[in-house]
Nucleic acid binder design. Structure first.
Lengths: 118, 118
DNA sequence: AGTTAATTTCGATATTCGTTGAAATGTCGA
DNA sequence: TCGACATTTCAACGAATATCGAAATTAACT
């Protein structure tokens, strides 16, 4: 991820509704949620939600797929990982940090598991 | 760090000049840089720089101290660590991630070392 | 005290952001 | 194909953001 991508992702997350929305999708997992359910959960007007969904899609933080007449949104864990990698590499001191991965499917290696970390 | 703090920090970093500014201070280390030098480096008008510095100070990402007639700004590594911790804990999949620390001076506590974390 | 240097604060302006309601799009089932 | 459902797009508006130049603050030097 380059600086422009990082700014886009940071800006997309720097808003109350969108951060809550992204957290909801992260918690939901790869299965995702249809827009209507998200609107109910977050108690935000459909057109307003649609606006925020576009922002997150544009930043690459969520993905959209159609299922019948509803649109399902799900977290793009990979992008979040890349954002964290960018921040740890560019905005942290002295490079003495580890880069976390976010994709639940992207399971830890055996070595990492044995490391017993966090 | 709570949700409000995270949004403030994310918003502060989600801007070209400010992200460059923060990266500059992170690279500079705890010593920091006076406003004038930052303005020269980033090629931004003094009054405009001052605006961005305030945003970062308000978000707790940088600190200000006076040295004679100049104001020195330096990165607050602790806040950045907390932001990364928030993102890994709340915006990553399944909680199977490790939290990095950012402060070059901030060595792990004995408890954390024994925990074998990061 | 008066002068200069470093920086911020203020006022004005153009741009972007977030919200809302109404209209449009796409999809399913009868 | 018609009607209902899920969602987006559009147009409009107020609020927040980013920028600049000019004036004000703070501190050092003489």
């Amino acid at each position: 991820m380059d600086q422009l991508g990082a700014i886009a992702a940071l800006g997309a997350l720097a808003q109350e509704t969108r951060l809550a929305l992204f957290r909801l999708l992260v918690a939901r997992g790869p299965e995702g949620l249809p827009a209507g359910m998200i609107a109910d959960e977050l108690e935000v007007a459909p057109s307003s939600l649609s606006f925020h969904l576009q922002q997150l899609v544009h930043a690459g933080l969520i993905a959209q797929r159609r299922l019948g007449r509803q649109l399902i949104y799900s977290a793009e864990y990979r992008t979040m990982s890349e954002l964290l990698a960018y921040l740890t590499e560019n905005c942290c001191g002295r490079g003495e940090v580890r880069v976390p991965f976010c994709d639940p499917a992207e399971t830890l290696t055996e070595e990492e598991k044995n490391h017993g970390c966090c």
